[in-house]
Design a protein around this nucleic acid. Structure first.
Lengths: 212, 212
DNA sequence: GGATAATTTGACCGGTTGGTAAACATTACA
DNA sequence: TGTAATGTTTACCAACCGGTCAAATTATCC
């Protein structure tokens, strides 16, 4: 009798870990491109190189696959913001936050698009996580506000500062097709991330300076 | 014998215009939320308050509905960028561009999400339009470059400047759910657009100043 | 008012999709 | 090596979905 893995708490065999890895990798491909409803289990199965019932042996429903993917990715996705350090130099902190977020857009564009799809749909499956996000942002907004009060950076709304950094950096993952189309083939190499980093650092370093 | 409207070039009856309007309005609701594949004709029909075959009487396929919607919206979507005036004052031009884009996010969030969905999916249905976009952006990038050369604004990459304005302003439409979740119910009124406008204007006005 | 064209709908069809049943294959372990 | 648990696949189902058809209803025009 085959018992689906969800019935047991502990990870079992080597083969389970491997196959779940392969499946989630394939699922990330398909979900990030087509969204939850647009993705089909058959598609994911084909990318994963196994049969559809085999997928459903590891994840009992399409929903469960999507869920597992989101849970796994969400955690690492907010790491850059967590590293935001109140004790650090504001300029250095903001600059490296931008860098890190841009690197994530470059190295993990599918993860970014997975979230973008989810948020576009009204975030039906991550309502609780949004609450955690709010707490984290509140915390970091307080850090920024303290910097402003200490006169280390110019006056600004910390929430909209964070939004703007999210938007500008994730843009290069979520709207990749558009960015490439506008830049043309000649400028669509990985160099665009360096150009973006340069531009954004200048914008934020000048834009957040203490004004007379 | 009923002849589908696509067979005739000229708009016919008052009732046709009205019904097509209702259908596209409903389709915008559904497509912008669920994407092309995620949307169903039945859903749109329900929102539009008519039967599915009746929808298909006005638009012969789901594809045709989506197409009509995109064509209609795309044109007005780029209007703010077209108004970008080479003769104008750079600070005023950039500031009012940001304003206009923010207003569009506030007043037409579904249109923004419709495009976001399309781009996320690799823009399968707007490849030609992307070419027009590239030309328009090239043109405006030249304007910005001229401003830089004339010493009217600080040195910056004009393309990434435009990307950053798109990203920051559309963020409030596309990631609305996230923005509201982070700001909390108290700050999620329409006032957030005013706060965003203030923040972004400050950021870009300071960030683009000519540096010593 | 009646003929004709335009509009609307219920019933239906073939293909797709998420998910299941059960037989078959492989692995882990005594 | 035997056997029980684990893993894999073929065949299949019911629901859904895009789209068609023909009949019914309504608007238009003389």
């Amino acid at each position: 009798m085959a018992i689906p893995r969800a019935a047991k708490t502990q990870r079992r065999t080597r083969i389970q870990e491997e196959k779940e890895e392969i499946i989630l990798e394939a699922a990330l491909d398909v979900f990030s491109m087509h969204g939850f409803k647009g993705a089909t289990i058959d598609q994911i199965a084909e990318v994963a190189g196994m049969s559809k019932p085999n997928l459903l042996y590891y994840f009992r429903t399409k929903e469960a696959m999507h869920r597992a993917l989101i849970d796994r990715v969400l955690d690492t996705w907010l790491d850059p913001l967590r590293e935001f350090d109140a004790e650090g130099n504001p300029e250095v902190e903001i600059k490296s936050y931008i860098r890190r977020k841009l690197e994530m857009s470059r190295d993990f564009p599918r993860e970014s698009r997975l979230f973008a799809n989810e948020i576009l749909r009204g975030a039906p499956s991550i309502v609780e996580e949004l609450d955690d996000l709010r707490k984290l942002v509140d915390e970091k907004a307080e850090v920024i506000r303290a910097w402003v009060k200490a006169g280390k950076i110019g006056r600004c709304d910390p929430y909209h500062l964070i939004f703007s950094i999210w938007a500008t950096t994730q843009h290069y993952a979520d709207f990749d097709v558009q960015v490439k189309a506008v830049l043309g083939p000649a400028r669509s190499g990985d160099g665009r991330f360096e150009d973006a980093a340069r531009f954004l650092e200048q914008l934020y370093m000048s834009g957040l300076q203490v004004r007379p």
